[in-house]
Design a protein around this nucleic acid. Sequence first.
RNA 1: UGGGGUGUCGUCAAGCGGUAAGACACAGGCCUUUGGAGCCUGCAUUCGGAGGUUCGAAUCCUCCCACCCCAGCCA
Length: 560
Amino acid sequence: MIEDATSTQSDFIREIIDSDLKTGKHDRIATRFPPEPNGYLHIGHAKSVCLNFGLAAQYKGTCNLRMDDTDPAGESMEFVGSIQNDVRWLGFDWDDRLFFASDYFDRLYQFAIDLIKTGKAYVCSLNADEIRAYRGTLTEPGKNSPYRDRTVEENLDLFTRMRAGEFPDGAHVLRAKIDMSSPNITMRDPVIYRIKRSGHYRLGDNWVIYPMYDFAHCLSDSIEGITHSICTLEFENNRPLYDWFVNELIGGSKPRQIEFARLNISYTILSKRRLIELVESALVDGWDDPRMPTVAGMRRRGYTARAIREFCSRIGVAKNDNLVDIALLEHCVREDLNETAPRAMAVLRPLKVIIDNYPEGATEDMECANHPQKPEMGTRMVPFSKTIYIEKDDFMEEPPRKYKRLGPGREIRLRNSYVIRYASMVKDDATGEIRELHCTYDPDTKNAAPADGRKVDGVIHWVSAVHAVPVTVRLYDRLFKVADPAGAEGEMKDLLNPGSLEVVDRAYVEPGLGQAKSGEKYQFERTGYFCCDTKDSLPLKPVFNRIATLRDSWAKISAK
RNA sequence: UGGGGUGUCGUCAAGCGGUAAGACACAGGCCUUUGGAGCCUGCAUUCGGAGGUUCGAAUCCUCCCACCCCAGCCA
């Protein structure tokens, strides 16, 4: 198991576990990560994965991966596969403990029979609307169903026939007989089985009745010997029901449900429903669109599993509603990639520069460090020649104060190369746009300070025009333009950041990058971290996704 | 206005009766062939509010306020 996930500070759940271990309530701990295979995992799930698997690792216990597939609608093997892939990619391992709630259907059915036999469950023949009406409201108690007092024999007969497929969908449900006047609506004779003929993605038509979450989940936990069943806050109301089923049906050690606050992140959305909406309305390009907060999307964007784990560790585990600043996530990727990503030069918006006093047709190989602080990462050769491209932003005709880049009369250091001095510019007669710059270079400054001791403050990156490789670069930014899209009014499409994707069709990268392989991550010096796209890159024709920008203190200065 | 939760810096989050950790963000400065990275400094006299208990309260008690969740045959 990975180390960084185990070296986490404490939280209220770990305190509970420490106490359970200390008092001898448990001598080992068992958790589980229980997704429903009806969608892709997102970073909110990653928080839960890190928590559950991290706990198991920390306490030398186990964490099961369990598909909570009790409602066949929307579930599929595709999702089962993507979930396994994502959990594994995040760095966790469930060994041979991949389970399916649907594998427990026989036992669950038996538990239901047991409940009927002890008079704790009954078949109710009210329709859905009637059940709702009988349930009462938040402030008014419910009324007993007229079917509540059916005999055990009648219930057994009806339930058996429900299973046998004798009734149409919705004709009957099995309900727990608890308390229709409970102030906790969850306890007002909750439905535990419904008839649903949709066909299960694993079991086909074996069943026409399916257990509800409240019934299946606690019993699945019990079957697997889970000690701590960790879920999100919205299930707090369900805990009494969780305990009710367990107490009625399970002897010995019982699992304990503990709830924590789900993750929210600014400028994005983490509800499965909304994510599905984004995909289905084609507002994004699929579940793995690099702007998506899905594990698949983030992976494709270039986020590392390590960065995600670090993020999950830093946000902590508590019960407060939260909206974590997306800047923290960005910080975590930068922190990781700063250590690991080789540097390279890429010019996103090229401006041609001709070095007048540099010999025509000559080429020089410049030795460049792959990481300025890590000599062990080696060096590479980057060709330099008379005509180069620099970033448009790195020249200003009328530079403001504090601007350290190129301008009329100015000198600048070309990264890993020479110092050049501005000579003149050529403008387009019609538009006034700057077409190209002419400069002169100082031959004595190749990776050396000027001999006369004059200071050259600015450093800019460049790429040799004849050697550079044109590539497509996709500049990603936050998906939404509002900090809290989940809490915002209006339609989702109106909340999206129109600048969340900018495609640069013709950026120039240093020659070596032409051979970049899918998934490789680089720091394009002075611009950001980029990942060679795993889907759209072709051999020798890479497409780069911007993972994150570098911190840009000039942007802050210039904004003032 | 039923029940269940939560309220500590802009955002997360420690704190568990002994006098407010840390992180991100932000603001200054140093350093720098990435305006990157790194380094240094600053950033809650105050813990939703009001009372009370105590030598001492963010921590205990009382009342109040705000926000979140629950009326799927979803999970």
